[in-house]
């Protein structure tokens, strides 16, 4: 029996689902997968159709968030005929094999970062996408943060001429969920902190500067959690192929979880761009809401994925950029591990 209608309540809820929605399967049911599922729910034209995780209860719990979504522990079900796009949200060591399998099965792929843990594996993924003729979007979500989209527009408009010097500082109050179980603490699964989180900044600068890193030096630093088996913070010096330079300062060390300091200085041949999160109104204590300059990136990225699937946009992460950023991140990890500058070609 239907409940008695309450004034103002919807009696027949429109789920918004359409027959031609792009059906998304998510592999992995961790924190980032949950973020993707939330974003998918907010973008018309996409529908979470299926969840895969090796833990049945986690897969079921995530699938339960979307009406009609199914779940499985079998990865192959993530590129079945009932799926249009496979979102690979597992830990990094499995990205290459899962991404290649989905592409070979003819699915479009949203691939969490880092794309892979080696350049040959990255090449394998890029080749699979090219052969299959299917879209591949690497989830370099930082590109979709409002401030970076604005900076990219400014650079593209010629506002600063050719970018030649970048100084990027990102400090975040972050604690990895899961404590000591986190894959982020295991370099064999994550590629190391410099690789798996450094790729965000290296990808952003590769994109904004339209150039590829050729030499890097990275120095790790242990701050709020010196007992972790991986440095919580690090810096990277970068030289690009056309001579441009960059300083990257990444820190997960702010004391309060959820706090941010974000700054980017980009000096070009005719002007300088600068953004600092210190300049925008926000709460002064730890906040569940990100600064306006960074909020909403996951939804923007997901909307872009929909546009890619609709054939009205090319993936923002161009293959050469995917390769360049990942190679630079791996070179930076090697530099941090061996305390020496590293030519990016050394890891290619």
């Amino acid at each position: 029996m239907n409940p008695v209608p309450v004034p103002g309540a919807q009696q027949a809820r429109d789920t918004g689902q359409r027959a031609d929605d792009h059906r998304v399967a998510v592999i992995g049911a961790g924190a980032i997968a949950r973020d993707h599922v939330t974003a998918i729910a907010g973008v018309p034209g996409l529908r979470l159709a299926h969840v895969v995780d090796r833990h049945p209860e986690r897969a079921a719990a995530l699938a339960a968030l979307a009406e009609g979504a199914t779940w499985s522990t079998d990865p192959a079900t993530a590129w079945s005929d009932a799926v249009d796009v496979t979102a690979v949200c597992t830990s990094p060591e499995s990205h290459a094999d899962l991404g290649v399998a989905a592409l070979r099965a003819g699915r479009a792929v949203l691939l969490e970062k880092p794309a892979a843990l080696s350049v040959p594996d990255t090449d394998r993924i890029l080749a699979a996408a090219k052969t299959a003729g299917r879209p591949l979007l690497v989830a370099q979500t930082a590109r979709f943060q409002p401030v970076h989209l604005e900076i990219a527009r400014s650079v593209a408009s010629g506002a600063i001429g050719t970018p030649r010097l970048a100084h990027l500082t990102w400090y975040t109050g972050h604690v990895w969920p899961g404590g000591w179980r986190g894959w982020q603490l295991d370099a064999s699964r994550s590629g190391g902190h410099v690789a798996h989180n450094g790729v965000h900044a290296l990808d952003l600068l590769t994109w904004l500067m339209d150039d590829e890193p050729v030499r890097v030096f990275a120095r790790p630093c242990r701050t709020w959690a010196p007992g972790m088996p991986t440095p919580d913070s690090f810096q990277i010096l970068v030289r690009f192929s056309r001579g441009a330079l960059a300083t990257i300062e990444l820190c997960y060390a702010l004391v309060e979880r959820g706090t941010f300091v974000r700054r980017l200085m980009l000096a070009g041949t005719t002007g300088t761009l600068h953004h600092s999160s210190e300049d925008e109104p926000r709460t002064r204590s730890a906040s569940p809401v990100a600064p306006a300059s960074t909020e909403g990136a996951m939804t923007a990225q997901t909307r872009h994925l929909r546009d890619v699937l609709d054939g009205v946009a090319a993936p923002l992460t161009a293959p050469r950029q995917v390769r360049a950023a990942l190679a630079a991140a791996l070179a930076a990890q090697l530099s941090a591990d061996e305390s020496r500058p590293v030519d990016v070609k050394e890891v290619c």
Binding site: L165, Q235, L237, E249, M265, A267, T269, G271, T272
Partner: peptide, 10 residues
Amino acid sequence: TVTVARTPAG
């Protein structure tokens, strides 16, 4: 880290 430069605009 130290970043120093003379840039066209400040």
